[in-house]
Design a protein around this nucleic acid. Structure first.
Lengths: 237, 237
DNA sequence: GCAACTTCTCTACAATGTAGACTGTAGGCG
DNA sequence: CGCCTACAGTCTACATTGTAGAGAAGTTGC
C-alpha cells in the first residue's frame, strides 16, 4: 500500500507526473475522440488530468491553440514516405490513409476543415502544413513542374477532403435499426418533395466509402495525368 | 414629423414591426456576413433587432436551430433549374453558382460543412437537402440509373465542396501587402522544412479559383461519363 | 540553505445560452 | 362594452464557459 510515495513519474498513471504539451494534447485528443468537441473544455480537460484548469495555459495559449494542437496531433499520424516512385499510386495510398485517419477521429474532422478557414496559411500550425509540403515535394520529385504540382495537389486534396466530408455526413445513425429509411431518418422527409432521395434509401444505407474514394481518385488522377504536361517533360534529373 | 404615429408596419423600419422567422434569420445572416460566426450571439442578434434576446426563442428553438436556419437561407439562394438538357453543363453551371455563393458568404461555409456532420441526413433542415434531391433528379432525368446518379452526385459534390474549402483557405490575407511571401504569412515558415511551399508563394498568391474549379470539374465529369454506363443505357423515355 | 526559476492553484469576473415566470396586447364572444 | 384566451415579447436568474492576475508550491543550481 504505497499509493502516494512513488517518486517515479513515468510509470505512475495515478496523479502527479509533471505535465507536458504532449500529455495535454493527447489527453485532449482522447477526450474529443470519446465525447466530441464540446466536451473539450478547459475545466473538463483539467479534471481529466487531475490538475487545475488554469495549469493548461502553460501548454496552450488559449482554447484555440489547444484545438490547433489537436489538429496537428492527428495530422501527424499521417505518414508520407516516398517509398513508391509512382506518384499516382503514392497519392492513392495517402488518400486511403487519410480516409482511415478521419474515420478514426471523426470528431476532429470539423477542426481540420474549419480552423484553416480562420487562419492564414503562414500562421497555421506547422504540422498541418507538412502534408502539403510533402505532397508537393513528392510530385515535383516525380517530375512535375512546381506550378503543375500545385494544380495536382489542389484537385487531389480538394476531392479527398470533399469525399471525407461526404462520407462522414452520410454515416449511419443507428446501426441497430434495420429499415434503411428509418436508419437514416429519411422517413421524416415529405415524399412529394424528396422522391429520389427516399427511393435511394437502401443504397444510401450501405455506402462503401473506400470503394467510392478509390474510383473517384482513379478518375481524377488519370484525368489529371491526361490534362497536364506529362511528368518529366521539363524536369530535373 | 410623425415618426411615431404610423400604424402601417410594412414601411416602418424604425423599431416595432412584429418579428417573423424570416426577419430573424435574414438579420442573423447579415450579422454573420458582416462580423463572422462568433458575433452571432443571442444578445447581439436581439440588440440588432431592437428586441429582448429571449424573444428570439419564439422563432428558433435554440442557437443550433438558428445556425441551421442560416445555412438553409444561404442554400436557398442556389437556384437549380433544369433548363439545360445537358447534365454536364448543368452541373458545371451549378458548381460555379455554388462557388460564388460561398464567396459571397464565406463566414457561413463552416456551417454548411460542419453542421451536417452532427445531424443525420433525415433530420437536417429541408432546405439543405433540396440541392441533393434536385441534382439527383436532374441526373436521373438525364438518363442515369438512380444508383449511378448517386455516384455521380457524390463525386461531383465531394469535389465541389473540397474545392470551395481549398479556395477559401488560401484566401489572401492582406491584399495591400505586395510581397507574396508576406501576404500569405509564409515568411514565418522555416525554409529548411518548407522549401517547396515557400518557392510557390507567388503562384499561391494569385489563385484563380474559378479557372481551377472549371478544370477540375471538366476532368471529373468527363471521367465519370467514361467510367459509367452512358446515360440512356437503361433509362426511362 | 537560500534564491531564482518554473509549475500549478485559487479567486474572480465577464460573457454566453437558456429556463421560468411575468406583462402586455389583440382578437373573439357574450 | 367587458371579459377571456392566446400569443408576442420581456425580466430576472442561473449554470457554464474562457481567462486575467496574484499567489503557493515545488524544483533546481549554487
Amino acid at each position: 500500500m504505497s499509493p502516494e510515495e512513488h517518486p517515479a513519474p513515468p510509470a505512475a498513471p495515478g496523479k502527479k507526473a509533471r505535465l507536458s504539451k504532449e500529455i495535454v494534447l493527447s489527453t485532449a485528443l482522447a477526450l474529443v475522440d470519446a465525447e466530441g468537441l464540446d466536451a473539450l473544455t478547459m475545466r473538463r480537460l483539467g479534471q481529466e488530468l487531475g490538475r487545475d484548469p488554469m495549469s493548461l495555459y502553460r501548454y496552450a495559449a488559449n482554447r484555440a491553440a489547444l484545438l490547433d494542437g489537436v489538429s496537428e496531433l492527428v495530422l501527424n499520424e499521417l505518414a508520407i514516405i516516398p517509398d513508391d516512385p509512382d506518384w499516382q499510386s503514392q497519392l492513392r495510398r495517402i488518400a486511403h490513409d487519410l480516409r482511415l485517419l478521419a474515420l478514426r477521429h471523426p470528431n476532429v474532422v470539423p477542426l481540420l476543415v474549419t480552423r484553416p478557414l480562420s487562419t492564414p496559411l503562414g500562421l497555421r500550425p506547422l504540422g498541418t502544413l507538412r502534408p502539403l509540403e510533402q505532397i508537393l515535394s513528392l510530385l515535383i520529385d516525380a517530375g512535375f513542374a512546381p506550378v503543375d504540382a500545385l494544380h495536382v495537389y489542389r484537385a487531389y486534396y480538394g476531392y479527398l477532403y470533399g469525399h471525407i466530408l461526404n462520407e462522414l455526413q452520410e454515416f449511419v445513425v443507428d446501426p441497430e435499426e434495420n429499415e434503411a429509411l428509418l436508419r437514416l431518418g429519411l422517413h421524416r422527409l415529405p415524399p412529394k418533395e424528396f422522391p429520389r432521395l427516399r427511393a435511394l434509401a437502401p443504397v444510401l444505407a450501405d455506402y462503401d466509402g473506400m470503394a467510392e474514394l478509390d474510383e473517384g481518385i482513379t478518375i481524377l488522377l488519370s484525368g489529371l495525368a491526361a490534362h497536364l504536361p506529362p511528368p518529366g517533360a521539363s524536369a530535373k534529373p
